[in-house]
Structure formats: C-alpha cells, structure tokens
Nucleic acid binder design. Structure first.
Lengths: 245, 245
DNA sequence: CGTTATCTTGACCGTCGTCAAACAGGGTGG
DNA sequence: CCACCCTGTTTGACGACGGTCAAGATAACG
C-alpha cells in the first residue's frame, strides 16, 4: 500500500497515533492544500536563519535535523522516518534555529504554513495534536542530551539504533528481516557526538559481538532487544500511544 | 517589586514576551486557581514515571530538569529561572519522562492541570502561547545536544553561563554587578556532561583568564560577552521576542 | 562546634580525537 | 568495457582531553 497517493492521510494517521481527532478534524486536515516535492539525498529542506514558509510532511525517504557550531562541527539532533511532520518545530517561530536535510532520496508534502496555522487556530483538537507531537519530539531531544552527555561511544550508537527501530515500527514500516539505518559512519558520528573513525571502531566491535551487520553504506540489525541492554534504552521517552489523560 | 504577590501575573508577563494575548486571555489566565508551594533546595517537583497532576510556575528560586541513565549517571537537560513555567512539557502527556528538581529554595505556583488544559482548549491564543513556549524550550534542548555533543569542556561551561545570563535578562532579573549561577561544580558537570573534577579544572582555567569569579558555591561573572566567543554562543536559538509573524 | 558537603589537587590511565595512508565501491565519461 | 574519481570505509600510530581514584583543605549547615 503506497501512501504516496494520499500524503495527508499519512499525516492524519500519524497525528491519530498520538492524539484524539474528530471526523471533522480529519476532514479539515485532508482538505489542506499541498504540493509534492521529490528530493535527492542530502537536500536541504530548510536552513538555519530562514523564515519557514511551508510545513513539510515526510512521505518517503529519511531526513534529519542538524546544527553547525561556529567552528564548523556538525551535530545531528534528530532523525525522521516517513510519515513524520518536519516543520511543526518552526510553525509558530519566526526563524529556523537549525537545518533540515534529507538522508536519502524521497518525497515530501508541502502544506503552506499559513493554511496549517489557520486550521490549528480554528480547531483546538488539531492544535492539541500538533502540540503533542511537538512535546514528544522535545522529549526525544532531552533523551539525546542524555545520550551524548552520559553514554560511551558504543552505547550511543546502540541507542540510536534502538530508537530508529522503534520509530520505524511505530510508523508500521517494519521489515521482517531486520532494520537498516541508511546513514554513513560520518553521519552516525555527527548524531552521536563522535568522529567517523571512532564510529567505525565501535561498529566493528558491535559486529564482532554479533549485534549488527553492515552491507554497503547501511547498518542493519535484526535484534534491537539485544542492543537495548548495552544502550540502556527505555522507550518511555517516546511516549508511544495516544496521549490525552 | 516582588511578584510573589501576583504569581499568575508573572506567568502572563512571561507568555506575553513570547506571544500575543488579548485582554480576555490575560483575564482568564489571571483567574486560574492556584496554590503557592514553598520548597527547599534539592526538592523534587516531579519525578520520571509519574502522572503530572499540576502545572507549576516558578515564582522564585531556580530549578532544573534531569534524567538518570540506567547506570546511574545524571544528566541535567535544562535550567529554569523565576517566572518560567515548568510543566508545559508534560501538560498533554500521560507520563513524565524526566525529573524536575529545585536548585535553590524558592516558591512555585501550582495550577491544577485540568484547569490549565481546559483554558488552553477554549482559548486558541493561550494554546498558541503555550505552544510557542514549548517550541522555544525544544530549541534550547537542540542547542544542548550540540553543546554536549560538539564542544569541549571549557566551552560547554561558558555556553551554560551565557545562556543563563541571557535568560535572566529576559526575565528582567538582571543584577547590575554581574550574574551568579547557583550551582555546585557537580551540577555544572551534570549539565555539561563532565565530571565535577574536570569542571573544577575548567573553572580554574576560566578564572585565570579573568572570565569568571567564584564565591562560595556560586559562579559569578560580569561580562558574558567575553564568554560568548569561547563558547561559540549565538542567541538565535533562544527565539527572544514575540513570535507570531 | 562538630559533621557533612563541596572544592581542590595530584597521579594515573582510558576513551576517543587526530593525522595519514590504503582500500573498496559505485558512478561517470571516454 | 575499462579507466578514473569521488565518497566512504578501514586500519595504525600517536596524543590529548577528560575520567578515575584518593587524599586533604575549605566551607556550609545544623
């Protein structure tokens, strides 16, 4: 089932995994105007300092957020899998504080920023769903602070893989023969606060332990539960399931 | 002027620095029920795993958020100065993913969670103000990922001091003879992903350079602009000023 | 005024960064 | 179809930033 035909249905589905929406809310969301944009790997969808003009939803492919420090070091601050909205973090801010870049080729649905804001302001449930999405992302950022601040190199990578697996599952993108992270070792380093060289060493260690396999430029793994222990991974921070009291 | 007499006015003022509110919105916020809670230093206001029941606003004193990894390491993920709301991050989530603990003695205004949620759902502008507050906090988390992931020990501390200074200023809490961070060296370490011993070394280095002074358990500094350079600090991520376009 | 927390310092060591070179693979153009 | 190149991976040697351990000095607090 390709969701590319109905990009906004993907978004509605995503929001409904986190919050309650009425039939009217769903209908209004599906009636939002949008355009489809195809992109290559490494395309910038938004740059720090820009005023965001659209609200993108990732339809296929993978993307990430990153920041560059004054001395040129790059830090990836989050990963995104298909179905996830990319611009809620800026929807009510004047200026982007980070970059959004694609990891692979893929497609995004671009909804005009104003249309989305107007809908959110008119429909409290939509605004709340948006808020829940932002809150969960904020929780993930906090976990990443812990990850880069307090875990060693090997554990950080394991943690990244665990989170990726769970988030793929949450989007129903599970591949029965394991997970495959489409990142170069340099990108894994940028996400975990290490150099590509050290990522290579840690990855080899994990491979020797039988926890991951590598083919080409992807890291694949079949058993994220085995990684969980060495990552100290707990899924509470992902706030899976519908939020609402 | 002590704002303790009017705790919710503090909150309204805070929200209005970030978003637009009408007279009706202000009035409704001021009519929220609340109780005042006095606390000592090191008091837990919320623990990971709990279901939050109140929405606290820090009236006086300082607080921070932190997470504990499975092997017992503590990571502080944010600091909070008087006037800032502490529980927006959980207001629409079922379960706390981190701890909120006080740094010093002080007071908080506790608004019942349900009352606040109801008001937000009834008043789009209030919900939006809340959202903007959450978005700015999320941006700060991203900057912290960069801080602990890509800067060296000395710069991380300098960055922490810069952020603290700016946020105090934003709340109008400026003390003309400099800033004073009421944290132990161990806490600074927990916030910047280092050990207390190494924080001590870096702090001594900063002191020798004439950038900070220490008295008792506080770090004080008069010139945050001097620190800015070695921190690679840029204030864009704080999204100061009214957001709304 | 004693007890405890925090700061301070030194010695030692490990994780991880740096530099550099060799290697593999995929893509392009001749 | 092969030569070439560019990006990414792999490996080793070396060094440094920062962690660990432990002891003593200082300051906070009841």
């Amino acid at each position: 089932v390709s969701d590319t035909d109905e990009p906004l249905a993907l978004l509605v589905h995503r929001l409904e995994t986190q919050a309650e929406l009425s039939a009217q809310d769903r209908g209004a969301l599906l009636k939002l105007p949008y355009t489809i944009k195809a992109f290559d790997a490494s395309t910038y969808l938004l740059r720090e300092g820009e005023a965001p003009s659209a609200c993108a939803v990732l339809v296929s492919g993978f993307a990430y957020r990153h920041k560059i420090s004054v001395d040129g070091a790059k830090q990836i601050v989050s990963l995104h899998v298909p179905g996830e909205p990319l611009d809620f973090q800026h929807l009510f801010l004047n200026e982007a504080d980070h970059n959004i870049q694609t990891l692979t080729r893929g497609e995004a649905a671009l909804v005009p920023r104003e249309a989305f804001r107007k809908l959110a302001q008119e429909r409290p449930a939509v605004m709340q769903a948006l808020l829940v999405n932002v809150l969960v992302e904020a929780s993930i950022f906090r976990e990443w602070v812990l990850n880069v601040g307090r875990r060693d190199g090997r554990s950080r990578i394991a943690h990244l893989l665990c989170e990726f697996a769970i988030r793929l599952d949450a989007q129903g993108l599970t591949n029965s023969n394991g997970y495959e992270l489409p990142m170069t070792q340099e990108q894994i380093g940028d996400a975990t606060g290490q150099t590509a060289v050290h990522v290579n060493r840690m990855l080899k260690a994990l491979e020797k332990e039988g926890l991951v396999k590598r083919m080409g430029r992807c890291v694949s793994f079949a058993d994220w539960r085995a990684l969980r222990d060495i990552a100290g991974f707990g899924e509470r921070y992902l706030h899976l399931g519908k939020q609402g009291a």
